[in-house]
Design a protein around this nucleic acid. Sequence first.
DNA 1: GAATGATGTAAGACCTGCTCACATGAGCAG
DNA 2: CTGCTCATGTGAGCAGGTCTTACATCATTC
Lengths: 218, 218
Amino acid sequence: MKWSRHEHGPHGGHGRAGYHHGNLREALIEAALSLIAANGSTGFTFAEAARQAGVSPAAPYRHFRDRDALMADVAQLGFDKFEAELARGWNQGVPDALTALNNIGKAYLAFARSQPGYYGAMFEAGIPLNATPALRDASDRAFAILRGAAEQIIAKLPDGTRPPALMVALHFWSLSHGIASLFVGRNAAQRTLPMPPEDLLEAGVLVYLQGLGLSKPG
Amino acid sequence: MKWSRHEHGPHGGHGRAGYHHGNLREALIEAALSLIAANGSTGFTFAEAARQAGVSPAAPYRHFRDRDALMADVAQLGFDKFEAELARGWNQGVPDALTALNNIGKAYLAFARSQPGYYGAMFEAGIPLNATPALRDASDRAFAILRGAAEQIIAKLPDGTRPPALMVALHFWSLSHGIASLFVGRNAAQRTLPMPPEDLLEAGVLVYLQGLGLSKPG
DNA sequence: GAATGATGTAAGACCTGCTCACATGAGCAG
DNA sequence: CTGCTCATGTGAGCAGGTCTTACATCATTC
């Protein structure tokens, strides 16, 4: 059987040029992202990714031990991107901690909405975080953004009334993740909300911070 | 090929007795629950369920249109059980609303922990809620418990300071679900928490309610 | 200009979902 | 009891998925 070979010219541009693809690993990851985005994490198959890349069904095994290894790689890249987005939202607490925290929340939901490929691999594909040390590290780095934000937030509280920063970070994470899972992901849009998920999250954070003893500025 | 036939005696006890199984639908659901619990929602296959029930691979199609239909059925049964557990936790607000609300939270996490089969079908299998009217109804009934609890909770607040009950219910649901997804499910036990998930949820609810203007009794 | 190692192919074992023609037997009419 | 009918299960098989093994090709390197 023949596997369609694009671009028979000598190494033209991006695609493959001859027997060797030249960029198969990245091409497979691209294919995985679009397949997960289109069909959910279970809708991604190794065989279809190979087909999209124009190689034989066995070729991917030269670059990934198995299907889950590719998925774990996508998840890790996703956590890297995720960390960057959360950090951009936080923006070192500028202009003020509360606004910046809400921007993290918006970034969280925006990521779930606009990066279904990554999000699916990270949270819906059943890949254990321990699959790879690199995966766990990437996940930890993303959470570290939340943890840092929580520290800045509770720093505004008077001594003796400060809850553990880790706990605050976990609360924020859980609330964001719950809203994303229930109302933003592929399995969302099924429950009608009385408000956008972003507003739901912002309101929840506001109430929570008031419970900690923070009143909104102004 | 032969499909092992247990109990050739005339209709002895539970299993199948001859050509006809007699209880295949329930047997398949049982198999699905144990397979999902053991291997995750993707680890359940129609063929393996048939094998566990001792019938041919084609037999399940007499009872379920396809694999997803069985999964949706399991999810619906799960929501029924879930609703019952949440209602038991709430116990009509006895002894007091705050305690009862925390009992709902405990019931939520306990369900995720002790019913991985149902939980997987409900939240991790990618079954759309719209798959079946009955599924959506079951899900709505479960959420109605939270909604009712939220109404009782905000009833204690003075007029003019009451947030929408629906919003409060959604916050509680999202926080519970986020904690369950991240720290209790199959994909959990991967992140080390400084406290049990139950304590994390209870602390979060306490802070949130204080933010609403409720102080704990005593 | 060969030797070598990385990358891709061919073929196939084995699995799953699902379909269709056919077999079985439980329940019912007489 | 006899015979019909229909729900339920079987056998066989197609399409397509994962993954392995032996082999082909080519870029690199000495």
